[in-house]
Design a protein around this nucleic acid. Structure first.
Length: 315
DNA sequence: CACCAGGATGTTT
DNA sequence: AAACATCATGGT
């Protein structure tokens, strides 16, 4: 059932704002900074939405999560405390990580501006499929495509406030008939996604296998997949498998390296940029990458700066 | 209406 | 190994 036939869902949306009565909460340790808004709006995840009052809603796995931060307090519903701690990696020692990557003035200012941003632990397949879809597209467009994909292929369920959809499994994307993938506006990425879905549907346990491999071997493994190049592989290893030495290089990072780092103009290829990132920032280079990406508005006024997306309307 | 986007693939030097 | 064209779609 393709669900473009819902007229009831939209009408009820005004109500869910005052209906929220969350119970569980987490008190953050003062020495472990966390910024929910930065973490969910920095572009590493695509299925979270923030309402006018600062409450975030997102589907992870087969649950709708709603979560809000007020100072050192996290209030949420939809999953248990352990899930929140794992998803947001609240047990990672962020000050130690940030201290280890704080090796130049530029990343230092990014750390100061984005302190509390954490790299989340995404479900492997959702992350992989999302970044295949994300190639050569901007973030609003990526979000819409993923939304289409979940509405057409995901399992519908009811969370607080309306109908929700899980992220579709590889089996569903690969084999469900009739195939409505054209409706998801994936363009030339559609055959990549289908072929990768088919391969992984026949390779159960690929996530467990990847999780045990070191960065290089896991990366080689991912690069066999259609639609997965170096950038997508590094994003998946960083955002879903906790390989923090991964240093994804997109056009923004490339531009930042080229214009803001001494000798950066000579970093022409992906491998040159990525190798520089790992050797310059070390074991947690991926964190440095994400902080620089989150702070990419610093490029405003540098030639192409008029195209820099101003940080999303927060608060 | 131009130009670009969390690039990958295939081909050509 | 590195440079290049091409790809489909939507944002700004």
């Amino acid at each position: 059932m393709c669900p473009h036939r819902q007229g009831l869902v939209c009408r009820g949306q005004i109500r869910h704002a005052q209906k929220w009565s969350p119970v569980p909460s987490i008190s953050l340790r003062p020495d472990q900074p966390f910024d929910l808004d930065l973490t969910l709006s920095c572009g590493q995840v695509f299925r979270w939405e923030r309402d006018a009052r600062g409450v975030w809603s997102g589907v992870v796995g087969d649950s709708l999560i709603r979560i809000c931060q007020q100072g050192q307090s996290l209030t949420f519903e939809g999953v248990d405390r352990k899930f929140i701690q794992t998803y947001f990696q609240l047990e990672e020692d962020l000050p130690a990580i940030l201290g280890s990557i704080d090796r130049d003035p530029l990343v230092h200012s990014a750390i100061c501006r984005c302190r509390g941003l954490r790299i989340v632990r995404q479900p492997g397949w959702e992350c992989l499929a999302s970044y295949i879809i994300a190639t050569f597209a901007n973030i609003p467009g990526i979000k819409r495509r993923i939304s289409h994909l979940c509405r057409c292929f995901g399992n519908p369920f009811f969370g607080s406030g309306g109908e929700c959809y899980t992220f579709p499994s590889p089996e569903t994307i690969a084999f469900r008939e009739p195939c409505r993938i054209a409706e998801c506006r994936l363009g030339y990425r559609a055959p990549y996604l289908k072929e990768t879905a088919r391969l992984l549907a026949g390779d159960p346990g690929w996530e467990e296998r990847l999780r045990e491999l070191p960065y290089d071997a896991a990366r080689r493994d991912l690069l066999r997949l259609k639609g997965v190049g170096k950038k997508v592989a590094d994003c998946v290893l960083l955002f879903a498998f906790g390989k923090y030495e991964a240093f994804p290089v997109d056009v923004w990072i490339q531009r930042i390296l080229a214009t803001r780092y001494p000798g950066g103009e000579s970093l022409r290829t992906y491998d040159q940029c990525s190798r520089f990132g790992r050797s310059h920032f070390g074991e947690y280079a991926g964190y440095a990458q994400e902080y620089l990406f989150c702070d990419r508005a610093i490029l405003a006024g540098e030639g192409r700066g008029d195209q820099v997306p101003v940080s999303q309307p927060e608060r």
